[in-house]
Amino acid sequence: MKGVWIEKTGGTEVLQYKTDIQVPELKEGEVLVKNEYIGVNYIDTYFRTGLYAPPHYPYILGREGAGTIAALGPNTPSSLSLNSSVVYMHQFAYAEYTPVPAHMVVPLPPTISPKTAAAAIIQGLTALTLIRDAYPVQRGDWILVHAAAGGVGLWLVQLLKAVGARTIATASTAEKRELAKTYGAEVTLEYFDNGDVFVKKVLEVTGGKGVSAVFDGVGKATFDASLGSLARKGSLVSFGNASGAVPPVTISRLTTKNAKLLRPNLFTYISEEGELEKASAELWDFIVKDKMDPRIHEVYPLKDIVRVHQDLEGRKTTGKLLLQP
Rank of each mutant, 00 (worst) to 15 (best):
G3E: 05
W5E: 12
E7R: 13
K8G: 10
T9D: 10
T12E: 14
K34H: 14
N41E: 11
Y42S: 06
Y42M: 07
D44M: 05
Y46S: 04
F47D: 03
G50L: 09
L51S: 10
A53F: 06
A53D: 10
H56V: 11
Y59T: 08
A66E: 02
G67H: 04
G67W: 01
T68C: 06
I69P: 02
L80D: 05
S84F: 04
Q91R: 12
A93N: 06
Y94T: 05
Y97V: 00
V100N: 00
M104P: 00
V106Q: 13
A120W: 00
Q123S: 12
G124D: 11
L128I: 11
L128Y: 14
L130F: 07
L130W: 04
D133P: 00
Y135W: 12
P136Y: 05
P136T: 14
R139E: 15
D141R: 02
W142L: 02
H146F: 09
A149H: 03
G150A: 07
L160H: 03
K161H: 14
T167F: 01
A169S: 11
R177S: 10
T182K: 15
V199L: 03
V199N: 06
K200P: 00
L203Y: 13
E204G: 11
T206H: 08
F215M: 14
G217F: 01
F223D: 04
D224A: 15
D224N: 14
S229L: 08
A231P: 04
A231I: 02
K233D: 13
A242C: 06
L254A: 10
T256K: 14
N258W: 11
A259H: 12
L262T: 03
T268K: 14
Y269P: 05
S271P: 05
E272Y: 12
E273C: 09
G274E: 04
G274F: 03
G274D: 08
E275A: 15
E275C: 11
E277Y: 09
S280H: 10
S280I: 03
A281G: 11
E282I: 03
F286G: 06
F286M: 13
F286K: 08
I287P: 01
I287Y: 10
V288D: 08
K289S: 13
D290G: 01
E298Q: 15
K303F: 02
V308W: 08
Q310N: 13
D311Q: 09
E313M: 12
G319N: 08
K320F: 01
K320Y: 01
